[in-house]
């Protein structure tokens, strides 16, 4: 597969004015400003292969938006190398942006007072899209995104979900090879979210569009991405598949068992005794030392069981722990030591 995005040792620092309070402080600020350097992105490197659909995760202020702004050419980095489709985003701006699509969840690229269709039609001369391609793309996206009912509605009167669908369509009319999505499902309800996700999957699978997606909503990631990049305080903590992330950190699973009769203990190395309430027992175990299949087999072998439920901690929990307990940093430090 071809590398479409190449990022090496990307740094972005901002100078932030430290404001002093009060009128006197305001005067001092004018005469002798004091700056603080904020490292928004700190030594980030990664590659994206053509056709990938990658989630870019991190808490607020982690540097996600800064990275996206650098990758889309809106920001010039302090240092580091970025090559996307053979171009450096912040050089040759007009040429570069022809090949990408960008959707910011909290903003629209469409003309506020115009009917959706007028905004879309403006894209044809703007990107020099051949008329035939333009018409067929419009027809296809209109169908997939169900735009028909509001094509003639001014953008200002659209619901958030409708607007997002229209924006997605606008970002793809010129058939970019690469799509940046910044919080595409922010503020949407479950149905609208699902619609958007299906569409993203479709254009990734059917059209081979490479997608880099930032989001707060981990269900987006679970549904869409095989690979995730996790960023915290400007640093890349994790770059790998979602399943291996699960495997590494979701160590404690729980097994809830409803017995039909009085029951005794099963013994497995490393298994702690369950919490018991009446005929119900809840085992909490490390799935790496206690294989869940074996535990269940043992129980079924010895007792009559009414119901079983294995629960893995949700991804959210894992990610939260990665940030809060700094799991990844510790691991890196261990490796280094």
């Amino acid at each position: 597969m071809a590398t479409i995005i190449r990022v090496r040792k990307l740094h972005k620092q901002f100078q932030v004015l430290v404001r002093r309070a009060g009128l006197g402080g305001a005067l001092v600020n004018l005469v002798k400003p004091r700056y603080q350097v904020v490292r928004a992105v700190n030594d980030v490197s990664f590659d994206l292969q053509a056709g990938e659909l990658v989630g870019y995760l991190g808490p607020n202020g982690a540097g996600k938006s800064t990275t996206i702004k650098v990758l889309t050419g809106l920001l010039v980095p302090t240092s580091g190398e970025v090559v996307i489709g053979g171009l450096v985003p912040w050089q040759a701006r007009e040429r570069y942006v022809r090949g990408i699509g960008v959707v910011f969840g909290n903003r629209t690229t469409l003309w506020w007072d115009l009917p959706v269709i007028d905004s879309l039609e403006l894209l044809q001369p703007m990107y020099d899209i051949p008329r035939e391609r333009f018409r067929s793309n419009l027809a296809e996206f209109t169908r997939l995104l169900d735009l028909e009912p509001f094509l003639n509605t001014p953008v200002r009167s659209l619901s958030l979900g409708q607007r997002m669908r229209a924006d997605l369509c606008a970002a793809l009319m010129h058939e970019p090879a690469l799509l940046f999505l910044d919080e595409p499902t922010i503020g949407l309800d479950v149905v609208a979210k699902e619609h958007i996700r299906q569409f993203i999957l479709h254009i990734n699978r059917a059209r081979g569009v490479t997608v880099l997606l930032t989001t707060h909503d981990l269900s987006d990631v679970e549904r869409l991405c095989e690979r995730v990049l996790i960023l915290d305080r400007g640093q890349l903590l994790y770059d790998g598949s979602l399943s291996s992330l699960n495997h590494r950190f979701e160590s404690f699973w729980t097994l809830k068992v409803d017995f039909e009769e009085e029951y005794g203990d099963v013994a497995l190395p490393g298994l702690e005794p369950p919490a018991r309430t009446g005929l119900q027992a809840v085992y909490r175990f490390d799935h790496r030392s206690v294989p869940s299949a074996e535990l269940i087999a043992r129980l079924l072998e010895r007792f009559r069981i009414a119901d079983l439920e294995v629960r893995r901690p949700p991804l959210e929990e894992t990610i939260r722990r990665i940030y809060q307990e700094k799991l990844l940093e510790r691991e890196d430090a261990d490796k280094r030591a």
Binding site: L74, E94, V97, V102, R107, M126
Partner: peptide, 10 residues
Amino acid sequence: LDQVLLRPVN
């Protein structure tokens, strides 16, 4: 202005 910079127009 970000939207402007993302369009392939002067």
